[in-house]
Each structure stands twice: as C-alpha cells, then as structure tokens.
C-alpha cells in the first residue's frame, strides 16, 4: 500500500478515479482561470516565477486575484496578507466539513492534503456523497490543482505578450472577476443586504482610510453584523464556489 492512509481506511483507486473524472468537466474553466491569473499577474509586474510560486504556495485563486493589484499598487505587505487571510476564511468551513472523512490518515499526509483544499473539489466531493469521500476528494484535488497551476504557467507565458494592458481594459478584469463571483453567490435577500452593505461601507472607508484597509474592515464588520442579526441558514453545507 503506497497511499497516505493508515490501515483503517485503505486507499480506494475506484473512488480516486471517480473524483478525478467528476472534476474533468471543471478542468477547462479552472485552466483558463489560471491562465487569466498568470497573464494579468505578469502584466501587473510580477515575474513569471512569482506568479507561479504564488499559485503553488497559496493555491487560492480569488485571493491571488485580490493580491496582485495590491502588490502592483505597493500596498503595505501586512494589508495584503491580512486581506488574503480574510478572503480565504471560507476554507475553515470546508476544512471542518471534510475533516471527519480523513480520520485514519497519517498526520503528515493531512498536513499536505490540507494545502489543496479548494472550492471546486469541495463541491465535487460534497455533491457525490455526504459525508464526502476522502478519495473522491483527493482525485478531484489532483485534477483541479494540476489544471490551475498548468493554466498559470501558460498564462504567464502569454501575459508578457500584451503591451499596454489598460488599453484593452484588462486592468478592469480584476474588479470584474470579483463582481462575477459575488453575483453567482447572491441567493437570499439577506445575501444582497450583506453585499450592498459591505460595498457602501467599503466605498465610504476607501475615501478616508489609507492603503487598502477598507476591504478587511468593511468585509469583516458587515459579515459579522450579518451573522449576528440575520436568521440562521437552513442549508447544512457551505454554499459555493468562490474561485
């Protein structure tokens, strides 16, 4: 047995393959998403190695899109890192849901597997079974991480080709990605309330606060207010993809 599992839960090649195959439908869009990131990151002034290194070490697309224009604008490192943390806080929810399925795995493998927690694989594994199957999840994570990093590599090569990106509106791709990600997540009326409240507070703060602190402050304040005041969700699982 060469897999990461201890004796209690043997690796299941069938489930691994299931997860991989189920994720193939997502591979093209994750690949393109990665290549858009790679291209825009290089245009914003990151080196190809930095864009690729970030994608391997951080491996969380939405937060990487957030960080690149902040790096380009010379925002304080702490503000960039804190913003990354807040954008990625949704991982706590996914990690807590996935964790029980991985009982019996060795800790050092868990430490590694934790790094590839991602929205798409979570969605695939949860859609297949509840609780999610560890091996379906791993098969999906292999497909998704491979597609993303390969996409970034191709994108960094292509991104250097465009000379004045703002001429083609490419600088607008960053806010456009964020707005598209919000639009697909708005389901309940209370979701709209949170999104609009955060937008209004962020604009107000952006006019008075230095750097990019309005993102973290407005994001945390309004989401916390929403969690305290809004009626509880009826959905048992975290909704969604935020990539």
């Amino acid at each position: 047995m060469t897999g990461p599992a201890a004796a209690s839960s043997g690796p299941s090649g069938g489930a691994l393959r299931d997860g991989l195959v189920a994720s193939l439908a997502l591979v093209p869009s994750v690949f393109v998403y990665g290549s858009v990131f790679g291209g825009l990151a290089v245009q914003a002034g990151l080196t190809p190695a930095q864009a690729l290194g970030m994608s391997v070490l951080v491996f969380a697309g939405a937060s990487q899109f957030v960080a690149v224009p902040m790096i380009a604008a010379g925002a304080p490192p702490l503000a960039i890192i804190l913003t990354t943390y807040v954008v990625n806080m949704r991982h706590y929810l996914m990690a807590a849901t996935l964790a029980p399925s991985f009982r019996g795995f060795r800790r050092r493998w868990l430490a590694l597997i934790a790094h590839v927690i991602n929205d798409e694989s979570f969605a695939v594994a949860v859609a297949r079974s509840r609780p999610p199957d560890a091996w379906v999840y791993l098969g999906s994570a292999a497909a998704i991480s491979g597609a993303f990093v390969a996409g970034v590599a191709v994108g960094t090569a292509l991104g250097g080709l465009v000379e004045r990106p703002e001429r083609y509106g490419l600088d607008f791709a960053f806010p456009a990605v964020f707005l598209a990600l919000v639009a697909v997540q708005l389901r309940r009326r209370s979701d709209w309330l949170v999104a609009i409240g955060a937008a209004v507070l962020a604009v107000a703060l952006a006019l008075v606060l230095p750097g990019n602190w309005h993102i973290v402050v407005a994001g945390l304040t309004v989401s916390a207010l929403g969690a305290l005041l809004l009626p509880l969700d009826d959905t048992p699982e975290p909704a969604g993809t935020c990539r």
């Binding site: 997540q185 708005l186 507070l201 962020a202 994001g219 309004v222 989401s223 935020c242």
Partner: peptide, 10 residues
C-alpha cells in the same frame, strides 16, 4: 459563509 459575500463587494 457571509465573509466572501461581504469581502468581494468591498
């Protein structure tokens, strides 16, 4: 669940 819904518009 609400954090990304607030952070992305922010």
């Amino acid at each position: 669940r609400l954090v990304p819904l607030a952070v992305l518009p922010a």
